[in-house]
C-alpha cells in the first residue's frame, strides 16, 4: 500500500510538472521567426505608407502654392494676404532656409557594462535632443533641424519603445546632427555655457558620449515635410 501511495504521489507530481513544462514551452523557432517577420513587415509597410503620404502632402503643397501665386497675380487683395501668408509659412517652418549657424553633433558613448550602473547614461535620449533644441532657441536660433527633420511649432520628441520619434513618426537614429541657423558665436556660447546642458556634458566626460559643435558660414535646413491641422482652437474675434 505504501509503495502504491508513493508511486501515485510521484506520478501526480511528474504529470503536473510535465503539464507546466508543456504550457511554458517557448514558441517553436519557426513561429517566433514568423511573428518577428510579420511585425517587421508591418513597420516597413507603415513606413512606406508614411513616406508616400508625406510625398503626396508635398505635391499638394506645391500645387496649392502655384494656385496661391496665380490668385495673387490676379487680385491685389489676394496679393496682400499672400505676402502675410508667406511670412507665416517662414515662421512655421514650411520653407527651406539657409544661412550661417551651428552644427551640433551627438552620438552614443561606451556602455560601461557595469553591474552597478544601469543608467543608460552612455546613450543619447530624446530629452537630450529636446534640451539642445531648447538651448539653441534660447540662444537666438532662427531655424533648427535634427537629422533633416525641421523643428516646427507642433514638433514633439518622444520614445516609442527604443525608437526616438519626431514629426509624424519619423524615426531618428544616431549619430544625431542638429543644425541651427542664426548667429554662430551666440549659438556656440549658448551650447558652451557651463550652466546649460550640464548633465549632457557630465555624461560626455563619464561615458565618452559624443557631444561637439561647429560654427559654419552656410548651413541649410529643409522645409517641414507635412502641414498643420488645427481642429479645436478657434480664433477669437
Amino acid at each position: 500500500m505504501t509503495v502504491l501511495a508513493s508511486v501515485s504521489l510521484a506520478t501526480f507530481l511528474v504529470a503536473g510538472l510535465a503539464a507546466t513544462q508543456f504550457r511554458s514551452q517557448p514558441l517553436p523557432p519557426s513561429n517566433r521567426l514568423a511573428r518577428d517577420e510579420a511585425l517587421r513587415k508591418s513597420v516597413n509597410q507603415l513606413e512606406d505608407q508614411n513616406r508616400a503620404l508625406k510625398a503626396r502632402v508635398q505635391t499638394l503643397q506645391a500645387d496649392v502654392k502655384a494656385g496661391e501665386d496665380e490668385t495673387a497675380r490676379r487680385s491685389s487683395a489676394a496679393q496682400e494676404v499672400k505676402a502675410q501668408l508667406d511670412e507665416q509659412k517662414t515662421f512655421a517652418g514650411l520653407t527651406a532656409l539657409h544661412g550661417p549657424g551651428l552644427t551640433v553633433l551627438l552620438h552614443d558613448g561606451t556602455d560601461p557594462n557595469s553591474p552597478v550602473d544601469h543608467s543608460l547614461g552612455w546613450t543619447i535620449h530624446y530629452q537630450d535632443l529636446q534640451d539642445i533644441v531648447n538651448v539653441l532657441w534660447a540662444s537666438g536660433a532662427e531655424a533648427i533641424a535634427v537629422n533633416g527633420q525641421r523643428i516646427v511649432p507642433s514638433t514633439a520628441f518622444h520614445y516609442a519603445g527604443v525608437n526616438i520619434l519626431v514629426n509624424n513618426a519619423s524615426r531618428l537614429s544616431g549619430p544625431y546632427t542638429v543644425i541651427a541657423v542664426g548667429d554662430p558665436p551666440a549659438l556656440a556660447n549658448g551650447v558652451g555655457n557651463p550652466d546649460q546642458l550640464a548633465e549632457l556634458k557630465s555624461r560626455n566626460r563619464i561615458y565618452g558620449l559624443g557631444f561637439s559643435w561647429l560654427r559654419s558660414t552656410r548651413l541649410s535646413v529643409p522645409a517641414y515635410d507635412a502641414t498643420f491641422l488645427v481642429k479645436y482652437a478657434q480664433p477669437i474675434g
Binding site: L39, V43, N50, A160, G161, A169
Partner: peptide, 9 residues
C-alpha cells in the same frame, strides 16, 4: 518597441 512604433505610425 515594435508594437509602440506600429501604434505611432
Amino acid at each position: 518597441s515594435v508594437a509602440l512604433l506600429i501604434n505611432d505610425l
